[in-house]
Structures are given as structure tokens and as C-alpha cells.
Design a protein around this nucleic acid. Structure first.
Length: 354
DNA sequence: AAAGCGGGGTG
DNA sequence: CACCCAGCTTT
């Protein structure tokens, strides 16, 4: 075993965190943790892991749940296709594989929501197979220590790090190596302010010796943040009913619920909104009463959302008979999974209704 | 190859 | 504010 892997694994054994999914060897639980941790920090995922594994102790429990139930528990974590894919994969494993997860890299790769990273993680952690993970931590740690200045968001840069990582994972503890390098990136070789003063690799780290730690890894393009203007219409009648709908198109928040939405290409005033054809259709030209309206911004990684909320009292909701609409009591909105910017207004909305 | 998909933490 | 996180899927 090379010096890099032996030093790294030794560091890991002394510094690793006590995390819930490290207390089990069940593939199901490791799988759930890996899906949660895709593009998500450990601290953000822990409570979701505990909640989900308590609600669904086995893959069969998860498979028997409805997609709405799974999404409700996933509410607030983001990247909701993970929850939908995880649920679909659970049904497949439960029904077609008799509840037994595939035990090979290629078999795991066939499950929805499992890509090269997750297949390598599960096969190495659960079965100690010789596959090597390449995630954001691995890119950072290896480009710095080995001085790789190729942009990591190119196929060439990816391939370079994959081969380097694979060659370094040369011991027999493949799963430990993978967890060790990710833990090292998360706790020590961090994106900002890495702890280079007390680093076990300070003697050999290329970036430290060339004073380029903060410049690695190299990324080529920046993402573009586009704006979207979302106007949500909260309708309610004297019986304290309201109407919601499920987002079923291929867009953000797919599978979650929302109040009827009027999306515009630019800022629109509440008064102009009231005059749109879409709103006339929603209200069926009834004598409505605009109780309140307010606006706020919601920042996603690659979108800036400008959100309007219109609270409208309306005599009747009986005209909204299309199957896309669901009439519910206003105190039942908490039963459904809502996007963060909508779930956060639940506690504010009732005040505006008085 | 590039775009789309959330929400939160950090400096 | 910019950048990043135990990435995957679709275009």
C-alpha cells in the first residue's frame, strides 16, 4: 500500500466523525445516506436521514409508501428528483429483486438515481469492492496535493482525477480509502481556509509549495443565474378552503405542491395581475377581495426567483373542477410537500386573512 | 458537452 | 456577494 493511502487512512481512523450511517452495515441505509448526501453537506442531511430511516426502516417500507409521503419527508432538502428516483428504485428492489440490493457496481448503476459516484461508494463501503469515488472532495484534495491544473469540469480533467484516484486506492480497504479522502476534504482540505499548517501532506503538497492552494481546483465556466417571476394566487373562501395543485411538469420542484401559479417574464404589479386572463379564469369573474399581497426574493443556485403572493378571498371555489386542482381545508396544507418559499409562508398567511 | 435541478453554509 | 456541497438526468 502506497504512502498516500496508508497516511490518509491512518488520519481517517483518528479523525472520522461519528455519523449515523457509519453505525450500520445495511446496504439500504448506506444507500439512503448516499442519495441524501449528493450535493448536500453532512450537517444538512443528518436529520433527514434519521427521519427517513425511522419512517421507512426497510426498503419494503419505502416501496410501500406513496411518492407524496416520501416527498413530504424530503421537503426542504432540495433536488427533489433524488426522492422520486429513490422511491422508484425502492419499488424496483422490493418487487423485482426480492428486497436484495445489487452487489456489483454495474448492478447498482442500473438503479434510478445511482450514478458512477454512488455505485462506487456503495460497492466499496458495503462490499469492499475495488471502486474509487470521485466527488467534489476528491477533486479538491487531489488537484491540490498532486498539482493538477486541468479544469475539473471538463471530460479530460475528470478522467485525469479518476485515474489518479484509482491508482492511489491501492490497499485492501477500498471503502475506508473512499470515506477517508472525502472526510479529509470535508474537514481538513476545505474549499476555503484549509488547515495547511497542520496537514499530514504538507511536505509533499504541490499546491502548498507553489502557494496555489486557493487556486485549486480549476473550474472553467461560471453558471448563469437567470431570473424567474412567480406569482402565486392563494384563493380561499368563507369555509376556509383553498386550492392547490401538484407540479408535474419537468421543472423545478417537480412532484411538490403549489398555489395556482401565474408566471410572468418580468415584474408585474398586483393590479396588473388582477387584470390578466389567467387570473380571470381562476376566479371565474367573481367578486373577489384582495386581502393582501407581498413580494420577496428566493435564491437558488442557478435561479433568482422573484415571488409574489396574492391572498384573495373569493365567494366560491366550486368552478375549479379541473383535475389539476385540489380543494383542501387551509389547515391541511401542512400535509403536502411544498417548496421552501411557499412552506415558509404558512405561518404568515393566516394573519393576512383577517 | 451543456444545461437543469434546491437549499444552506461560509468567508 | 461568490463559491461550494458524499451528483444525476435530460437535452
Amino acid at each position: 500500500m502506497g504512502k498516500f493511502s496508508s497516511d490518509l487512512i491512518l488520519w481517517y481512523k483518528e479523525n472520522k466523525r461519528d455519523l449515523p450511517w457509519r453505525r450500520t452495515s445495511e446496504v439500504y441505509r448506506v444507500w439512503v445516506s448516499e442519495i441524501i448526501l449528493q450535493q448536500t453537506r453532512v450537517n444538512q442531511g443528518i436529520n433527514y436521514y434519521l427521519t427517513l430511516t425511522e419512517a421507512f426502516p426497510t426498503v419494503h417500507h419505502l416501496a410501500r409508501a406513496s411518492e407524496d409521503e416520501v416527498l413530504k419527508l424530503w421537503q426542504g432538502l432540495g433536488y427533489y428528483s433524488r426522492a422520486r428516483n429513490m422511491h422508484a428504485a425502492a419499488k424496483y428492489v422490493s418487487q423485482e429483486l426480492n428486497g436484495v440490493f445489487p452487489d456489483t457496481f454495474d448492478g447498482l448503476l442500473k438503479l434510478k438515481g445511482i450514478g458512477p459516484y454512488t455505485a462506487a461508494a456503495i460497492s466499496s463501503i458495503c462490499y469492499n469492492q475495488p471502486h474509487t469515488v470521485v466527488d467534489g472532495n476528491v477533486f479538491r484534495v487531489l488537484t491540490r496535493i498532486y498539482g493538477v491544473e486541468t479544469a475539473i469540469n471538463t471530460s479530460q480533467g475528470k478522467k485525469q482525477i479518476e485515474e489518479l484516484a484509482q491508482s492511489l486506492n491501492d490497499g485492501k480497504a477500498y471503502g475506508d480509502f473512499n470515506q477517508a479522502i472525502m472526510e479529509f476534504g470535508a474537514l481538513h482540505c476545505t474549499p476555503q481556509l484549509p488547515a495547511c499548517q497542520c496537514c499530514i501532506f504538507s511536505d509533499t503538497c504541490w499546491a502548498l509549495q507553489h502557494n496555489k492552494v486557493h487556486l485549486l481546483p480549476v473550474k472553467e465556466k461560471k453558471l448563469q443565474v437567470k431570473k424567474r417571476y412567480l406569482n402565486f394566487i392563494v384563493l380561499f373562501n368563507k369555509e376556509e378552503q383553498t386550492v392547490i395543485q401538484r407540479r408535474n411538469h419537468n421543472d423545478i420542484w417537480r412532484g411538490l405542491y403549489q398555489y395556482p401559479l401565474i408566471e410572468t417574464t418580468q415584474v408585474i404589479s398586483p393590479q396588473n395581475l388582477l387584470n390578466t386572463d389567467e387570473l380571470r379564469e381562476l376566479t371565474a369573474q367573481q367578486d373577489i377581495h384582495l386581502i393582501s399581497e407581498y413580494s420577496f426574493k428566493h435564491q437558488l443556485t442557478h435561479r433568482r426567483l422573484i415571488i409574489n403572493i396574492l391572498n384573495i378571498q373569493i365567494p366560491s371555489l366550486a368552478h375549479l373542477t379541473s383535475p389539476q386542482y385540489q380543494l383542501i381545508k387551509t389547515d391541511q396544507v401542512n400535509k403536502y410537500a411544498f417548496p421552501k418559499p411557499l412552506s415558509r409562508i404558512f405561518n404568515e398567511t393566516p394573519k393576512h386573512r383577517l
